[in-house]
Amino acid sequence: MLIVESILITLLAIAYGLFLMGFDRKITARVQKRYGPPIWQQYIDTIKLFAKSTISHGFIFDMGVIMALGGTIATLLFMPVGDWKVLSMSGDLFVVIYLLAVALLGMAMSAVNSANPNASIGIMRALTQMLGYEIPWLVVLVGMMYTFKTSSIWNLVGGQAGGFSNWNMVRMPLGAIVAFTTLMGQLGKKPFDTFIAPAEIASGPMVEYGGKYMGMLIVQHAVGMFVEIGLFVNLFLGGGANIGIFLLKVLAVYFVQVLVGNVLSRFRVEQVVRFHWKWPMVLAFVQSIWIMVVGVR
């Protein structure tokens, strides 16, 4: 049963994540006054990539990619998707956050094993940037967990039951802003896409990936996007009463992300860290201390 359910949710996440990516491309095109690709473009791209021939730079190059996708799928199973709780009852917020790090480690290992300095620089930037955005995000979560006296995502979602005014976005407005900003960092949206930077370091970690390796990474990114936006939806937008509402909320959050990302230009990597450690950090502390002292209504 667990196996079947996890296969289904994985397929859902992959399909929806790829849809989100196509959606992103379409919205970006409209913002730039273009017609844009069809919304299913990302599916075609992925199929094509898996059909191409590939080269490998060694065992870790393969294993890292598998580890990246595997870690992300594992994270997915611990996250509530609407009212679909695969394993989310036995999950914990820290487990989810740190399992995502496995995926990053896998991807980092694989990319560096391609022995291309562009990839190493990209990974260096990705990790440095992570040091920037994770801290304010975790600070907000500390305040939230302390206030609701729980670290289980399911209970945090349950704590927001009872309509819009109980959503954490309303209860913790500053925290929601911080979480939204850090979510952009997690997703690598502009202006926090320093580690991809195609014109600068030849798409960074992706430089040596082609064919199915790139396909795997796109699938991984799709699932990762689903998990990260889903986490935001669960923690700040009250989750979803059913899967449909949950998916709609994910789409809405991502829509705003794409719009914001489209009008901003890329930061340098130390600017990313400085930025996150300045305003989001201050806001995160203000919000967390405020809610820890005052509590929720």
């Binding site: 196996i3 870690g71 997915l76």
Partner: peptide, 11 residues
């Protein structure tokens, strides 16, 4: 176990 499962899927 779930991590293993994820890796199996990916594999």
């Amino acid at each position: 176990f779930v991590f293993g499962l994820g890796v199996v899927f990916a594999g």
